[in-house]
């Protein structure tokens, strides 16, 4: 049986008829057509599929599309605004936080949530905040550096994106 699901993805409204078993990550990739959210496992270990659901980091392979009814979703495609990279994107670029780039969208989204909750994390807090994500290329050293650099440019609590402000408000 198909179900109607309507969501807001990166600010635009979407309506689809989907099977009840369709995972949110497949919904984003195959129905909405946003392929920046990746799939790296089938047991919810890798975090490649991480997005923000109402401002909170969620592994989108752990949710059904129908559970996203009425929710605001942010994917990697929604991070750069008006032709300007999000500070996390800029930092991953500057600090060589990626190699093959497959894990990167998931890390950036998880880090976005982390910084929304804790604008000035210590190295330890960053490592703990990202422990749900796996990278096979970088050894994590530069990923941690990227998040530290982004926290710095985002000026701690001062500069936050709309989604993050919303998340903090709701939290």
């Amino acid at each position: 049986m198909k179900h109607k699901v309507s969501t807001t993805v990166n600010g635009s409204r979407h309506e689809h008829e989907v099977e009840s078993r369709l995972l949110l990550v497949h919904y984003l990739r195959d129905e909405v057509g946003l392929t920046g959210t990746h799939i790296g496992c089938d047991t919810s270990q890798c975090g490649a599929c991480t997005i923000l659901v109402d401002g909170k980091a969620v592994k989108s392979c752990t949710m059904f599309a129908v559970q996203a009814e009425g929710k605001e979703l942010t994917t990697i495609e929604g991070m750069a605004k008006d032709g300007v990279l999000h500070p996390l994107q800029q930092a991953f670029w500057d600090e060589h936080g990626l190699q093959c780039g497959y894990c990167t969208p998931g890390f950036i989204m998880a880090a976005a949530y982390l910084l929304s909750q804790n604008p000035n994390p210590t190295e330890d807090e960053i490592r703990r905040g990202l422990e749900g994500n796996l990278c096979r290329c970088t050894g994590y050293v530069n990923i941690v550096k990227s998040v530290q650099a982004a926290a710095k440019t985002m000026g701690g609590a001062k500069a936050k994106t709309g989604e993050q402000q919303a998340a903090t408000r709701r939290a």
Binding site: I76, E77, M79, T104
Partner: peptide
């Protein structure tokens, strides 16, 4: 990197 960090890989 630009395409990979913006989901355009």
């Amino acid at each position: 990197d630009p395409r990979l960090i913006t989901g355009r890989g």
